[in-house]
Design a protein around this nucleic acid. Structure first.
Lengths: 172, 172
DNA sequence: CCTATTGCAGATAAAAACTATCCACGATAA
DNA sequence: TTATCGTGGATAGTTTTTATCTGCAATAGG
């Protein structure tokens, strides 16, 4: 069981974007620089977040990314599912049917008990992720992070965020 | 986030071994046949279970595998950790330190909040897995499984299990 | 003692997933 | 018009997973 590195990048970027003011944006290149990540590859992950309506993107100069909704309404589960996909970690291959004794499909109408137990555990995992909002992450960092780190982050955001003309309201 | 197929195989095999009588064993080849799996590859997984003291192996003819302790004291977490390893799914790369602004290591003594939240979720996952014992899986199957399937399983176990001479008590 | 069966370790390799880079394209602010 | 930015596709290197095979050690039964 393993999560891709993109999850870490995506959460950090989303947390950074939570600090940009109003409807301002921040370029993907700045986010990559902020965490020492490969810009080309990070864009792929930011794209997934955009596709899942977690981020919004603005093209052109002065463009970039911003949160598609307030950080209070974005959970870690939203981000993890956007990056890793919605499939459960345990995918039952129904190997109970593959044995030498072939039974009718009607013998397997009930969900495999092993699958049920694994899915139950994953529901607990996702529930815990859904309990943590992006705003919690940011608030915790602002409250307990090292002052030097916070100052550096604020300076970085102030330097790279770009105000937008159009309204921040999103039409779908 | 993805679990290897070996987890499914390992749990099914462990559940099957829970049905062998006393200190009898069942060969790995029989277990592979029972679920239509590649024998060579399944042995790798059974070996991991043996290394983690979940199974015991007996060499020689009439040898094979058996549970190292009662099914009541084997949880799904034991098996998942044996196959997938003990590392958490989310591995913090500390990318917060990789930005253009280099700070002293003392600025990062506190655990990254994102890491903390992800680890908390994984604890919930593992707690749910630890709640399910192998005996629960077997009991549920015996109670609610299809009668034809249960009969086939029992016949298969009866055909392939092999009684042992030595005592089942294990000395470490 | 001999043989057949079984688990074990290592080498090997095919397949899939993950990570990473590059380029052509459309959008747009200045 | 130009420079900046996001988008999508193509490509490729690396790692992980899955799978197979071979030789070796252990041992039950004759």
């Amino acid at each position: 069981m393993k999560l891709g590195e993109g999850v870490e990048a995506a959460i950090h970027c989303a947390a950074t974007l939570a600090s940009v003011e109003g409807n301002s944006t921040m370029p993907g290149a700045a986010l990559a620089e902020s965490f020492g990540l490969s810009p080309s590859y990070l864009l792929k992950h930011l794209n997934m977040l955009t596709a899942e309506r977690i981020l919004e993107s603005v093209p052109g100069p002065a463009g970039g990314y911003r949160l598609a909704r307030p950080a209070e309404r974005i959970t870690l589960l939203d981000i993890v599912l956007a990056i890793e996909g919605r499939e459960p970690a345990f995918r039952c291959g129904e190997i109970r049917r593959n044995g030498p004794v072939k039974l009718d499909a009607s013998a397997y109408v009930k969900l495999c008990g092993i699958n049920a137990a694994m899915l139950k555990a994953e529901r607990a995992y996702r529930a815990a992720l859904a309990e943590t909002r992006l705003s919690d992450i940011v608030a915790d960092y602002q409250a307990e992070g090292d002052p030097r780190s916070i100052a550096a982050s604020c300076a970085f955001v102030a330097r790279h965020q770009r105000p937008q003309k159009s309204a921040s309201t999103k039409q779908v």
